[in-house]
Design a protein around this nucleic acid. Structure first.
Length: 516
RNA sequence: GCGGGAGUAGCUCAGUCGAUAGAGCAUUAGCCUUCCAAGCUAAGGGUCGCGGGUUUGAAUCCCGUCUCCCGCUCCA
């Protein structure tokens, strides 16, 4: 049922110009999507709401826009080169995928366990007189196991170093490692999975530098920490915000725009004094949740999900999850990243990346609290929350379904449609006049085709909050009807009042006022 | 990558036993002028995902291939 709604939402996105499959006329490109004429407006509005809530509302947060291409050593320092180059292998019977290196490491651990058991047994037997070191270096069984371990370890280390995938598979075959699910040894080839896309910079192939497309925007902030801190005369605590594209070569990238290979992030890295990071972590948890809930989609549809397993750089992590039609899913991550990133860059670059604290009279590497939200996920979240199919009945009592996007007016792609009731008697000209006056303030749309009811429904489908209709009375007294998307009710107002009415509704001020 | 499902007009789909490519909606033009979809007339729009095979003849049967959707991992 809920999945069904999601399917309809995806179809709606295409039909009304929100999201298109990338390269569709060439059969599409997997897990890549384009935003259409309405999608780009909605997306821009979401970004503006985020950006202003960070940069405009906080005097200690500034923005940057760093390049997607960065020095390759950055990804060494960040851990992405090593942490996300996994050799993968599948078991053909259980259909389960494993990291080949982990399978071999587990095999090594098994041998160690055997040795430890021998040692334990001996310890029991000899009691206090037991000399573990001597036992380990002389016992025949232990030595035998140890020899096996050393041989396997050497072979494994060499294969990893050489990037020899065939050898890795051969080790798994030779060691007779079985899949814990199926218990079989029916393995596929080992394939290298690279999280990061790479390309080459430089025009000649031999002198070219291997460049990665960034898998997160955060590093562009970290490597500019000194620039911004110095030129902006920033004092701790302060934040740097950035909106930008990131790229990940996902193995399985699906669920529409929820997981894409090219996606956009809105990240804010907040630099704090060491020791205060967990307080700030809590503060940003609250702030970010209130940002989400200000949109009015229902507090019950959000929750925090605390990470049990932490990434290599974090000492606390939580996700903001939203109840999508396909379940609670992560929209935003809040991480306490410690001083990991800045320290790594300090080490790899050889530049001192520190903050001089005038109170303490000492320098230190600041700690970082990150808030990182996926624009595309936020986009999908907003649409999921707004997409509604309503039962309405027409004048003759006929039942009918109205599809409406009840978008917050601040985010709606089109703010106002102006339509002449009929396509003659000077009504179209009058409608154009109204648009010409308001088009500098709001995204307006003109529509004169089909019956007025049909035009209202078209506007409902893209979430336009206001429809203004010009009728014959308009020509006499300069009043129009304004029709509200959510209630379908109408008021007759003076044309001169339109600007104020719409401005009030679409200004982000009312959203900002709800933020904690 | 593996398994399952699907691919015919912009959308939703029909297409019988292998014999001229169809409908509704949408689009465009015209008529009608009406405040909540579906009035009238006409027009445009198709390499039937792609390639090959069988056949006098393939959207239909066979093989291959591509793409999308659903599951299996990770994440924003």
């Amino acid at each position: 049922m809920a999945e069904d709604v999601f399917k309809k939402l995806v179809a709606h996105c295409k039909e009304y110009g929100f999201v298109f499959q990338s390269s569709e006329i060439y059969d599409g490109l997997g897990a890549v999507y384009d935003y259409g004429q309405n999608g780009v407006e909605l997306k821009n509005n979401i970004k503006k709401y985020w950006w202003d809530s960070m940069v405009m509302l906080n005097e200690n947060i500034v923005g940057i826009d760093s390049a997607i291409f960065m020095h390759p050593t950055i990804w060494k320092a960040s851990g992405h080169v090593d942490a996300f180059n996994d050799p993968l292998i599948d078991n053909k019977d259980s259909k389960k995928r494993y990291r080949a290196d982990v399978l071999i490491e587990e095999q090594l651990a098994k041998i160690e366990e055997k040795i430890n058991k021998e040692v334990e047994k001996a310890a029991k037997r000899f009691g206090d007189a037991f000399d573990e070191a001597q036992f380990r270096s002389t016992n025949a069984r232990v030595l035998e196991h140890q020899e096996k371990w050393d041989a396997l370890h050497n072979r494994f280390a060499k294969a990893l170093n050489d990037g020899n995938l065939e050898e890795l598979r051969q080790i798994i075959v030779d060691e007779e490692i079985v899949c814990p699910i199926s218990g079989t040894r029916n393995w596929t080839e080992v394939r290298q999975f690279n999280l990061m896309f790479s390309t080459e910079m430089g025009s000649t192939s031999d002198g070219a530098l291997k460049i990665y497309l960034r898998p997160e925007t955060a590093q562009g902030i970290f490597v500019n920490y000194l620039n911004v801190q110095k030129t902006g005369r920033m004092k701790l605590p302060f934040g740097i915000a950035q909106i930008g594209k990131a790229f990940r070569n996902e193995i399985v990238a699906r669920q529409f725009i929820f997981r894409m290979r090219e996606f956009e992030q809105m990240e804010m890295q907040f630099f704090v004094k060491p020791g205060t990071e967990l307080d700030w972590f809590e503060k940003w948890k609250t702030t970010r949740m209130s940002w989400h809930q200000s949109l009015g989609f229902g507090a019950e549809n959000y929750r925090f999900h605390v990470h049990e397993k932490l990434a290599h750089y974090a000492n606390a992590a939580v996700d903001v999850e939203y109840k999508f039609p396909f379940g609670f899913k992560e929209v935003e991550g809040i991480h306490s990243r410690t001083d990991f990133d800045l320290s790594q860059h300090q080490q790899y670059s050889g530049k001192k990346i520190q903050y001089f604290d005038t109170e303490k009279n000492e320098s230190y590497v600041p700690f970082v609290v990150e808030t990182s939200i996926g624009v595309d996920r936020m986009f999908l979240q907003v649409l999921s929350a707004s997409y509604k199919e309503e039962e309405v009945s027409d004048a003759s009592g006929q039942k009918d379904t109205r599809v409406v996007l009840s978008l917050p007016p601040q985010l709606a792609p089109v703010k106002m449609a102006v339509m002449p009731l009929v396509k003659k008697d000077g009504l179209p000209e009058k409608a154009r006049e109204i648009i010409d006056d308001l088009k500098f303030d709001f995204n307006c749309m003109y529509d004169e085709k089909d019956s007025i009811g049909k035009r209202y429904r078209r506007m409902d489908a893209i979430g336009t909050p206001f429809c203004v209709t010009v009728d014959h009375q308009t020509l006499e007294d300069n009043t129009v009807t304004i029709r509200y998307r959510d209630t379908m009710e109408q008021d007759r107002v003076e044309i001169s009042k339109l600007r104020a009415i719409i401005a009030e509704a679409v200004s982000m001020k009312s959203l900002f006022a709800k933020l904690k």
